[in-house]
Computed example of a mutant assay.
Amino acid sequence: MKKLFFVAVIIGVLVMVFVCPWNVVKAEANDPEASNNKKYFTSYVVEKGDTLWDIAQEYMTEEYDTAHVYIKEVMESNHLESTGIIEGQMLILPYYADKPIR
Rank of each mutant, 00 (worst) to 15 (best):
N78V: 04
E63N: 13
F5W: 15
P21D: 05
Y96Q: 04
W53Q: 11
D50M: 05
Y95G: 02
D31C: 13
E63Q: 14
I71Y: 05
E81N: 08
I86P: 02
E63H: 14
A67L: 03
Q89F: 01
A27N: 09
D54T: 15
I55E: 04
V74P: 01
E73M: 09
N30T: 06
E62P: 00
L52N: 15
L80W: 02
I10K: 12
K3R: 03
Y70L: 04
V7A: 09
N36C: 07
V15E: 03
I71D: 06
A67D: 09
G12N: 11
A27H: 10
P94S: 07
N37H: 03
E58R: 04
E81G: 08
F6A: 13
V13K: 09
D50I: 04
G49A: 05
W22P: 03
L14P: 15
N23R: 07
W53T: 14
Y96G: 01
H79Q: 14
F6T: 13
E87N: 01
Y95H: 10
V7F: 08
W22G: 05
E62S: 02
F18P: 11
W22Q: 11
Y44E: 02
E28S: 13
T66K: 08
Y70P: 02
R102D: 04
M75F: 02
L80Q: 01
K26M: 12
V15G: 09
N30K: 10
D65A: 10
L91N: 11
S82I: 00
I55Q: 07
T42K: 15
S35A: 09
K26T: 12
P32T: 01
Y96M: 05
Q57F: 08
L14T: 15
L14C: 15
E63L: 12
I85C: 02
T66M: 09
L93T: 00
E62W: 00
A29R: 13
K72N: 11
S43L: 00
S43G: 00
Y44T: 04
Q57S: 14
V15M: 10
S77C: 08
E63W: 12
K48R: 12
F6R: 11
L91C: 10
A67F: 02
C20L: 12
E63M: 13
I92Y: 05
H79V: 11
V69Y: 06
Y40P: 10
E63D: 12
H79W: 04
G84K: 14
E62R: 00
E62Y: 00
M16P: 09
M90K: 15
V9Q: 06
E62V: 01
P32Q: 00
A8T: 12
I85R: 10
V7G: 04
T42L: 11
T61K: 03
H68D: 15
M60K: 08
A34H: 08
N23I: 03
V15D: 03
A67W: 03
